[in-house]
Every structure is written in C-alpha cells, then in structure tokens.
C-alpha cells in the first residue's frame, strides 16, 4: 500500500484539474447524447413533462447513492444499504400501521434508528479494522435477517396523505425529488466549504497521510457511515410513501444499484476523488436512460444489458489506476 501510494501521488496531483473537468464531462455528455437521441426517437421525449417525470423517478436512487458517495469518498463502501432500507421500511409501515398519530414519532424514530445502525457500521469498521466491504456485507446480512424475522410479507400501512412525500406536487414540481435536490445542494456545499468535507476527501485520498496530519480519521469514518444510515432511513420512508407499505425485500436491489450512479458520476471507488453532484447527475442519467429505452419499447432485460454496458463505458473512460 505504501509503495503504490507514494508512486501514484505525483501523477495524481498533475492530473487533478483536467480530471475534475473530465469527471462531470462524461456524465453530462452521456445525458446530452441520450436527450438528443430521445428527441429524435419521439416527440414526447423532449417535453417538460417527461423531464419532470425522469427527475422524479431518480429520487430514491439519488438518495441512497448520496450516502454511498460519502462512504466511497473515504475509500470504503456501504453494502448494507439495501438490507437497511428493507428493515427500516417494514418497521415504518409496520409500526405506523395506518395510525395517523404515529406518523411523526415513528418517522423520527426510524431516522434515529438508521443513524444508529450506520454508526454501528462505522464503529465496527474502525474497531475491528476489517475492510468496510466485509463489515457492511455482514451487518447487511444481519439486518436482512432481522427484517425477515419481523415479517415475511408486506407489513402494515400508512394513513392517507402520507404519499404526499412521493407523489405530492407543488406547481407540477415533485416535492420528494425537490427535497432530495436540496439535500444534494447542501451536501455539496458542506463537502466543498467545510473542513469536515475536505477531511473526508483527505481520508480517501491517502489514509496514511490523513493519520499523520492528525485528522480525526476514526470519527470521520463513523460520521460517513452514520450519514449513509440517515440517508437509508430517508429512502425507506420515501419508499413506504411511494408503495403504501414496507416490504422485507424493498431495498434488496439498492445495495449494488446505489454504487452505479456514484461511479458513473465520476467518483473513484478508490476514494478521495469525485463529488456528490456527479452522483446526482449519475442517478438522473440512469433514470433518463431507462426512460429512453422505454420510449424505444426495449424490454427491461435489454435495459439491464445497456445499463451494464454504460457502467463499463463510463468507468473505463475514467481510468482509476488504483484498486478499490
């Protein structure tokens, strides 16, 4: 590790600026290409309505992927997000159980629980010194088991009006998606303008150097996993609002899917390089791509193939150079 770090460093520094341009450039380019192609294919693709629709459809993925971005920026990964979303979503609807009085306290409780689970991930990673991939894989299995022990079928329900979070609109603009956009802008500001944000980059760039600089590496590691847990809790509540109940496998697909917008958006799995806005664009790109393929009447299976190829294309364009 020490050898690769020292030999890689000067090259990184030299490439820093063009890489930042390249990073957002690729995802923006892909979005433009798909938009142009879409407009050629159908008149309805280029309408405002369609773009708002795509914007709304990227909400859930964007939310999980934000937490994933933070953990990946530190050089880690959170593979427990899917199970965490599953567990928290069944708990949300199961405990609320269509009782309107419980909505606020339960949602608050779920958010706290999400943060606690995330914190446990962070503590386990720091204390056991095991690779985050393995730790979160393990806690993910535990959480999935707990979700299934709680219920094997969709549980409980939510009162009318709860779906405002997912389907509500103010002047045609989706409420849920706008909240997510604001969260992203806030996160982007914090990551760029605060010492904590820059320290998170520093850990991912060179953990050893961060330790030598006296940065609170352990606390920051716990922080990013706690934030990932918080965002999972928000996603879980959003999904309950969208589907009307929590399901024990609601989050299963998010585990690996949450990594895609992050890397397509130019964040390196090796940590330290990338950013949250790229992830937002990555999530939008994926929603746009699926929308485009729907216009082409391409089956969902082929959509998967195209998505896989887009990942290969995007990440091989970035050239990581480091293992992650």
């Amino acid at each position: 590790m020490s050898i690769t770090a020292t030999t890689a460093l000067p090259r990184n520094r030299a490439r820093r600026l063009p890489e930042q341009v390249l990073r957002l450039g690729i995802v923006v380019l892909l979005i433009v290409v798909i938009t142009v192609l879409g407009c050629l294919v159908s008149d309805r693709f280029g309408t405002l309505n369609n773009f708002l629709n795509v914007y709304e459809q990227s909400t859930d993925l964007a939310l999980v992927a934000l937490g994933q971005t933070l953990t990946i920026l530190t050089g880690g990964i959170d593979l427990s997000v899917g199970s965490m979303i599953s567990l928290l979503s069944v708990l949300t609807s199961g405990i609320i159980n269509s009782n309107g009085d419980l909505v606020l306290p339960v949602c608050a409780g779920i958010i706290v629980l999400g943060m606690v689970i995330g914190l446990i991930n962070g503590i386990a990673i720091v204390m056991l010194r095991v690779h985050p991939l393995i730790v979160t894989l393990g806690t993910g299995a535990v959480l999935q088991g707990l979700a299934l022990l709680y219920t094997m079928a969709p549980a409980g329900g939510v009162p009318d009006g709860f779906d405002f979070l997912a389907y509500g609109r103010i002047a045609d603009i989706s409420v849920g998606a706008t909240i997510v956009l604001l969260v992203y802008l806030l996160a982007s500001f914090l990551m760029r303008r605060t010492a904590t944000g820059r320290n998170i980059y520093a850990i991912g760039d060179d953990r050893h150097a961060a330790v030598l600089l006296g940065l609170p590496v352990k606390r920051l590691t716990m922080l990013v996993y706690t934030l990932s847990g918080l965002l999972c809790a928000m996603t879980a509540i959003y999904l309950v609002a969208r589907f009307g109940s929590g399901q024990p496998y609601a989050g299963a697909n998010y585990t690996l899917a949450s990594v895609t917008p992050v890397v397509v958006g130019g964040t390196m799995l090796s940590g330290g390089r990338g950013g949250v806005i790229g992830t937002l664009l990555g999530a939008y790109l994926i929603a746009l791509l699926n929308d485009f393929l729907n216009f082409l009447h391409v089956s969902t299976e082929i959509q998967l193939v195209v998505q896989g190829l887009i990942i290969m294309l995007a990440v091989s364009a970035y050239r990581e150079g480091k293992r992650g």
Partner: peptide, 23 residues
C-alpha cells in the same frame, strides 16, 4: 488493461449477463 476497479468491472458484466439471460 483499462484499470477499472474489479468491483465495477465484474459488477457490470454481472448485470450484462443477467440482462442477456433474462432476454
């Protein structure tokens, strides 16, 4: 050759194969 991280390269081929198989 392209220095893609193993996680992503194999994730992508997993998704592609899955799609082809279902199709």
């Amino acid at each position: 050759k392209r220095q893609v991280s193993p996680f992503l390269a194999t994730l992508a081929s997993m998704i592609v194969l899955q799609g082809l198989r279902f199709a």
